[in-house]
């Protein structure tokens, strides 16, 4: 799971190691990556909103 989260974070950042990419494609299931991506996108939206709320304070 930690590997999946790390790969999704790398995708958010836009940079990924080629070796990691290969192993993800060989071992993981796509649905796990997609679901993790959606959940983490929601978490990021929440983070951005709370930062904006704090700044608007």
């Amino acid at each position: 799971m930690w590997q999946v989260i790390k790969s999704v974070l790398a995708a958010f950042f836009g940079v990924q190691k080629d070796s990691r990419r290969r192993s993800d494609f060989e071992h993981g299931k796509p649905i796990v990556f997609i679901a993790t991506g959606v959940v983490m996108a929601l978490i990021m939206v929440g983070l951005v909103v709370s930062v904006a709320m704090m700044a608007a304070g």
Binding site: F13, G14, V15, Q16, K17, D18
Partner: peptide, 12 residues
């Protein structure tokens, strides 16, 4: 060469 993770992280 195909990729260079350090440089890519740097310029992102």
């Amino acid at each position: 060469f195909h990729e260079h993770t350090t440089v890519e992280v740097f310029w992102t």
